[in-house]
Design a protein around this nucleic acid. Sequence first.
DNA 1: GAACCGGATCGTCAAATATA
DNA 2: TATATTTGACGATCCGGTTC
Length: 284
Amino acid sequence: MEGMVEENGTTGGAGTTDPLASASSSTPGSTPHVVTSIVQLTLPSQAPSAQVQSVIQPNQQSVIQTASNIQSVQIPKGNVILVSKPSSVIHTTQGTLQTLQIKPEPNTLVNTQGQSCSDESCGSGDESPKRKYREMLTRRPSYRKILNDLGGAEIADNRMGSRPGCETEVSLSPSLSFAPVIPAGTIQTDSGLHTLAVSGAAGGGAIVQYAANQDGQFYVPEDQTRKRELRLMKNREAARECRRKKKEYIKCLENRVAVLENQNKALIEELKTLKELYCQQKTE
DNA sequence: GAACCGGATCGTCAAATATA
DNA sequence: TATATTTGACGATCCGGTTC
């Protein structure tokens, strides 16, 4: 299929289902893009193809706007657009707005950034179910990125630490004690480091190196313990920050919904008024 | 008051992604 | 390419509400 496709559904890469994902790559206030009023779709089942004509004329500007600019997507030759009406939650007056999925050509893999690549460059060779499941999920852009694109950079950059009353205290424990992690006498070893696999509380595992002292007690070397502590502390902070950003992001979305609902109401009112005016003029 | 439930929050791990 | 950062997922814990 040639030409551009304009649709309010998802236009991202394989598996992308977040309607906001496209917002991250659009630039508010950028040059107006070309509107194609006729879109040809190849339907998956009965109807081999259908033409959809837009009610907006090519030289008219649409009054319906997304929060950011609508993304145009070039469909490479040989690709098929699947239309999944039943799953759509966005309703038009005559049904549901159709969602577009881009099916890659055979032997073409799409990575998590929506970029296609060859089998050799993409695959890791690991075919475990967990891996497959993870690969099905598409990682969204970072909340900071999304907020920046939505014009909320000041929110994204406003860290807890820079807010009055929200200072985060970061302190490193100067020296961590050498608590034996394995009861003495359970393992007889020579001197030197040994490796032990341990399972974490969250189901994950870790490889821990340990050493034995003269009394036969086993312990984790201080350097390693400290490194781990530091890593955990950093990640703890990062997780907090990430959750905070996620909350901001959701708040931002809710605000956008409210704004768009108001706009929608206003437009409906305007349309109603114009229709009445038109009818009045017609009868005169 | 004890038991149960559901939601919120947290720490951790692992993988994806960004950056030096 | 190595290292740092970000974030989804998971399990643990806490807390308030509800039921018995």
